[in-house]
Design a protein around this nucleic acid. Structure first.
Length: 261
DNA sequence: ATGTCACGTCGAACGTGA
């Protein structure tokens, strides 16, 4: 099974790039963030013609998440339970024996103290959701733009200041609390150290200087982690014409041993 | 090297968020 998460920075601007990527990589699931449109404006027909059905939670201008799936699925929830905020940042579906939470965590650098508190509130609600899914022995993946560099090596030297919301100690602690519930960071399970950036800012020649960040992550519940085969950012995508500032993170899993043949 | 994009409000440049 092949899954990917990708902050596309406007699905309407990136539609042809995404369709081209789907054609080449043929994932079973693609979780997209920052679609930046209302649900009704989402180009569902174009993706349907490529063989994907979608679960879309959009809003005007900002945010928005959508999960593309080959084959049958059901929507579990169109918002993160316990996160009392109308922003379109979470959609959870169930397919092929997996619950897939697609998330776009608040950046936390705008809106002052309140904006940062919203980021931590999302983390709290996400941890509560993880505990609930673990309690019920649900196999799950939480994937998306976490807006967190978990370790110093996940942030290029000088790319961010020490007070940036993506690297603050409180931010890393919140991410670690989630991990320490028993989840596995797919990329780090297979590549324990070293550069694995998923984002390069449009500004200041960040791509040319390889001044990137690792902020897009896929966290796996224990039984799913046992099945992990590969995890890697698709770095080549950043060199395309008019790219997103993020690249896809692709993971592959062994077939479910519980599934009936 | 504060060197870029995308969106909405506008009806040309800005403000906002990233």
């Amino acid at each position: 099974m092949k899954l990917a998460t990708w902050n596309v920075n406007s699905v309407r601007q990136r539609q042809h790039l995404i369709l081209d990527w789907l054609e080449r990589h043929k994932p079973d699931v693609l979780m997209m963030q920052e679609i930046k449109c209302e649900t009704a404006q989402f180009p569902a027909q174009a993706f349907a013609e490529a063989g994907y059905e979608c679960a879309v939670v959009g809003q005007k201008s900002y945010n928005g998440v959508a999960t593309l799936v080959r084959g049958a699925f059901e929507v579990c929830t169109d918002h993160l339970p316990g996160f009392d905020n109308p922003a379109a940042r979470y959609v959870e579906i169930r397919t092929q024996g997996l619950t897939l939470g697609n998330l776009y965590l608040p950046n936390g650098n705008s809106g002052g103290a309140e904006g940062y508190a919203t980021k931590l509130a999302f983390f709290d609600a996400l941890a509560a959701r993880a505990r609930e899914l673990l309690r019920t022995d649900t196999n799950f993946i939480f994937a998306g733009d976490y807006n967190v560099c978990p370790k110093p090596e996940d942030c290029a030297p000088g790319a961010l200041g020490p007070d940036d919301a993506l690297v603050r100690p409180e931010t890393r602690a919140a991410y670690n609390r989630l991990l320490w519930l028993g989840l596995t960071d797919a990329l780090r399970a297979l590549q324990p150290s070293g550069k694995a950036y998923t984002f390069w800012d449009y500004q200041a020649g960040a791509w040319d200087r390889d001044s990137g960040l690792r902020i897009d992550h896929a966290l796996l519940s224990p039984a799913v982690a046992e099945r992990l085969l590969t995890a890697s950012p698709d770095k080549a995508e950043r060199a395309c014409e008019r790219p997103s500032d993020h690249v896809p993170l692709i993971i592959t899993l062994q077939d479910d041993p519980q599934a009936t043949a």
